[in-house]
Nucleic acid binder design. Structure first.
Length: 222
DNA sequence: CGCCAGGGCCTCA
DNA sequence: TGAGGCCATGGC
């Protein structure tokens, strides 16, 4: 396991996750620097992106984010004040738009009552529980939010993580989400940037080689 | 054309 | 608690 993550870091020293849209632009980009100060708009964009990308390719999410940016739907308040049809149209490319509209709506109502400043005071697990309590947010989405929008150390376990670890015989196939998460957290350094980058690297490798139908030629983990 | 994508909810045993 | 159905668009 430790060997696996060392190799991962060697391959991808820094992927710049989570992609954020720079001020006065509309397209999210990956950050060259590890330390960036997130504005509330940035944080909101990450939370929205985490929901929009559920079981959806990031390319489809980018278009939705671009539309939301152009419509200046950059805050919970603006989202809630915007007409449903307009928002649905904006996020259409990300698929499941009816469900996702509802999820975003519920998230925004939550954020109106709980400012980022207040949410940041919670401990990691407590903040996770807060998000998990919202309809439409499961463990992976909650953990993405906690890690990338709030810079709190929790490892994001997605289908890619389960796939690549089980293919490399580092975990049993039917291990539960939190069992995998805790196992990984025990085996990696206590570093926020590594938590982010290891997850990003797993996604990257699974997109290129360790696909559902694996391209085992040139696999670095052979 | 079919498959897949940075999941989660609901239903029914 | 586990399996199966459902949600939906766009790239390949």
């Amino acid at each position: 396991m430790k060997q696996f993550f060392n190799k991962l870091e060697e391959l991808y020293p820094w992927l710049g996750w989570w992609p954020i849209t720079p001020k006065n632009e509309v397209t999210p980009i990956y950050s060259k620097s590890k330390k960036i100060l997130l504005t509330n708009e940035n944080k909101f964009e990450i939370l929205v992106g985490a929901i929009l990308t559920q079981n959806t390719s990031w390319n489809n999410v980018i278009k939705a984010i671009q539309n939301l940016k152009k419509l200046k739907i950059l805050s919970p308040e603006n989202f809630l004040n915007q007409k449903k049809n307009i928002v649905i149209q904006a996020i259409k490319s990300s698929g499941y738009f009816n469900q996702k509209y509802k999820k975003l709506f519920i998230l925004c109502e939550f954020l109106e009552k709980n400012s980022f400043e207040n949410l940041e005071k919670y401990k990691t697990i407590e903040l996770r529980e807060k998000f998990l309590g919202l309809w439409g947010i499961g463990k992976e989405t909650a953990d993405s939010m906690v890690l990338y929008a709030f810079n709190k150390k929790i490892f994001v376990v997605d289908t890619y993580t389960r796939r690549i670890l089980s293919r490399n015989k580092l975990i049993e196939e039917n291990l539960e989400y939190d069992e995998i998460r805790i196992l990984i957290e025990k085996n990696i350094p206590n570093s926020l940037y590594k938590y982010k980058n290891y997850h990003a690297a797993i996604v990257e490798i699974c997109k290129t080689n360790c696909k559902k139908k694996p391209l085992c030629d040139g696999c670095v983990f052979k």
